[in-house]
Amino acid sequence: MTKARVIVTLKNGVLDPQGKAIESALGGLGFAGIGSVRQGKVFDIVLEETDPARAEAALKKMCEQLLANTVIEDYSITIG
C-alpha cells in the first residue's frame, strides 16, 4: 500500500474570497500581524499500488481529472 497526500491550492493571481473572509475574521478575533490568507484542500489517499512511480502517475491522473481544477489550481503530491 502507498500513502499519499495531495495539496491543492489556488494559483497565484487567482482571487481567493474564502481566504479573504478568513483573513478578516482572524483580524476581528484579535489576531494581529496576519499579512494574508490563502485557502486550499488536502487529500490523504491510500492506494493499493506499491510501486511509487505508478502510484504517483495514478495520483497525477486523479488530480488532473477530479481533485484539482488545473485552470485555476496547482497541486503537489507527497508519497510516504
Results as ranks from 00 to 15, higher is better:
Leu26Ser: 04
Met62Trp: 03
Leu47Tyr: 09
Val71Cys: 03
Ser24Val: 12
Ile79Arg: 01
Leu10Ala: 05
Leu26Val: 04
Ile7Trp: 08
Val14Met: 01
Thr78Gly: 10
Asp16Ile: 06
Val46Leu: 13
Glu56Ala: 15
Ala21Thr: 14
Ala58Gly: 12
Ser76Asn: 12
Phe43Ile: 02
Glu64Cys: 05
Gly33Lys: 10
Ala58Trp: 02
Leu59Met: 00
Ile22Ala: 12
Lys60Phe: 05
Thr78Phe: 09
Lys20Asp: 12
Ile34Lys: 03
Ser36Phe: 06
Thr78Pro: 07
Val8Gly: 10
Ser24Phe: 10
Thr50Gln: 15
Gly27Phe: 04
Asp44Ala: 01
Ala57Arg: 08
Gln39Phe: 08
Gly27Thr: 07
Leu15Val: 12
Glu48Ala: 15
Ile79His: 01
Val6Arg: 05
Arg38Phe: 04
Glu48Arg: 15
Phe31Asn: 08
Leu26Gln: 04
Leu29Met: 14
Asp51Tyr: 02
Ala32Trp: 00
Gly33Thr: 01
Asn69Arg: 12
Ala68Trp: 08
Ala68Cys: 08
Glu73Asp: 06
Lys3Ala: 13
Glu73Tyr: 05
Asp44Thr: 12
Ala58His: 12
Leu26Asp: 05
Ala57Tyr: 07
Leu15Asn: 05
Met1Tyr: 13
Glu64Pro: 09
Asp74Leu: 04
Lys61Phe: 05
Ile45Phe: 01
Ile34Leu: 01
Pro52His: 05
Asp74Lys: 08
Ser76Glu: 14
Val42Tyr: 03
Tyr75Trp: 09
Gly40Thr: 03
